[in-house]
Write a protein that binds this DNA or RNA. Structure first.
Lengths: 300, 300
DNA sequence: CGATTCGATCGGCGAACATGATGGTTTGGG
DNA sequence: CCCAAACCATCATGTTCGCCGATCGAATCG
């Protein structure tokens, strides 16, 4: 019954435009016989004639039922064409991409990524979500920034190594590198124990160094404010101190740690075995480029 | 390329709902093999995978491209269903019908026809047009009322015979039938010389009777007003004097003519060889019924 | 490591499609 | 009045396409 096919509607529209089965066939690259059969099939599907065939050189004329079918059919065909357009645009890189980020991980990378992606695809829909869970829900995202290895069915791309630096109030330590032992029992401000944070604390503890964590917060600004206020020092990844006014802040001093902590690795990861959108694929490439530029930039 | 078929979209929607090719096949009455092939065909048409197949008991998962296709596809399917609904309603008698009427021909029939048609099909779109051309454009109408025969490729259905009556101001003629000769040179108000009017004037002239036409107007009311005002008498078809307040108007008198004029035949006609809508077909039936009732109604 | 679930693939069969030729119908001109 | 032209329907034919049944390979789970 409702076995209407788009091809038949195209043919019907052509017949209406041309006023003749034969000319419509010529336009569509069919034979007159084919057009005749297609219209017959369409008429069987809708349950009534859509054209009156006067016979002879008179042009065929649409019936009232045919007018209804044609009006709705043209609408349907327009929708189908719009669908094809949308698909083509999507394949060219338009569409939506959901990117997850965590804490201060990507405060340097993400703005550049978004800017370049939007420059390439002005119409694209970039959605960012920052969640504070340890084991993130990569399942609902296209891409996710993360520091540290992650298990599960996840593919990853390493973006950069992010070394830890010690940020202290001026006068807390003498200029230059600071030995790890100096942090044992020292008051410190730190991130919550998610992501890479447990790992560096374990690394310190392995050397018998146990700082006194006096405050934990996920906000970079809050950490730095507390350091400025003299609450304690902080071990922050370079990305977190690289930008902003940290280096020009006279009340703060940045020290290297000796021996240095194992670097934090920043990854871009996504669900394994899942087809990426062209936009997401492009985002990965751009993220890698951006990370390489940032990693190669001199420290000050 | 853009060879997307509605059937494939239905299958894709089912797969998305069920999370499995096999269950979708069971729901649709297909085989798993068929669903697999249909999805493959769809993927070839859109140029990319629409599902990720993890393999094993894991449910298939839609890809970003698939999400786009599905969103647009559901819209397309909804349109197609709406189209089927519209067609079904049309075949049940809904839709639009264009009816032409002329002068005072159908002042009695048309209101009843419209009322009954709208009672049967509340949603239908009845359009009336009254044109003052002699040879009407039946080509743009579904149905047309007309008095008198018409040539061309026109099918017709006779509705009723409409005899002419003489309407005069009280006191113009003695009560009862009036002989034709009395109208020779008499002042009369008449319709314009279109439709049936030339025929009755010829019929009078054939008997040597030539009224003095002092005013021609297409409006029934205008004719009667002029008769009341004493401008002259009028030969009007019975339909024109049947309704309204003519018979109860004490200032007017209705006479038969002896010998009577040949009756005016009222037809409903439409273009020959043209498929009509169910609504139009029903309108014809109702018009015939209505006309029969009116013709059978006693004169006063 | 088998049992299970799942999609892909192959061979085959029947329906649908496109073609070319033929026939019936109508129109308009000589 | 008949003939040529335009037009659509139909038929027979070859080919494609859709669907099915069966089988295979992959992944998961107990």
């Amino acid at each position: 019954m409702s076995d209407i096919e788009l091809r038949h509607l195209v043919t019907m529209a052509a017949v209406t435009d041309e006023g003749s089965f034969g000319r419509a066939a010529a336009r569509l690259g069919y034979t007159q016989s084919t057009v005749s059969q297609q219209i017959a099939a369409l008429e069987k599907a809708v349950g009534g004639a859509v054209f009156d065939r006067p016979g002879g050189p008179k042009p065929v004329r649409i019936t009232p039922l045919g007018a209804v079918v044609l009006a709705e059919g043209r609408d349907l065909l327009a929708r189908a064409e719009a669908m094809a357009d949308t698909i083509d645009r999507f394949k060219a890189g338009d569409g939506r991409v959901d990117i997850g980020t965590f804490q201060s991980v990507s405060n340097m990378i993400l703005p550049l990524l978004v800017r370049r992606l939007r420059a390439e695809h002005p119409g694209c829909d970039i959605r960012l979500s920052e969640e504070e869970t340890d084991q993130p829900r990569v399942g609902e995202l296209d891409l996710m920034f993360f520091d540290g290895r992650v298990d599960g069915d996840v593919e990853h791309r390493k973006l950069l190594d992010d070394p830890y630096l010690l940020v202290a109030r001026r006068g807390t330590f003498p200029a230059g590198p600071v030995r790890r032992e100096r942090l044992d029992g020292a008051p410190m401000v730190a991130y919550p124990e998610v992501c890479d944070q447990p790992r560096i604390e374990r690394a310190l503890a392995l050397g018998g160094v146990r700082p006194r964590i006096v405050f934990r917060t996920a906000g970079n600004d809050a950490v730095l404010s507390m350091v400025r206020a003299g609450l304690g020092s902080a071990l922050l990844p370079r990305l977190a101190v690289h930008g902003g006014d940290v280096r020009s802040d006279e009340s703060l001093r940045i020290h290297e740690l000796r021996p240095s902590l194992p670097v934090r690795e920043v990854f871009l990861l996504w669900q394994a075995g899942r087809t990426q959108s062209p936009l997401a694929a492009r985002a990965i490439e751009i993220a890698v480029d951006v990370a390489a530029e940032i990693a190669g930039r001199p420290d000050s």
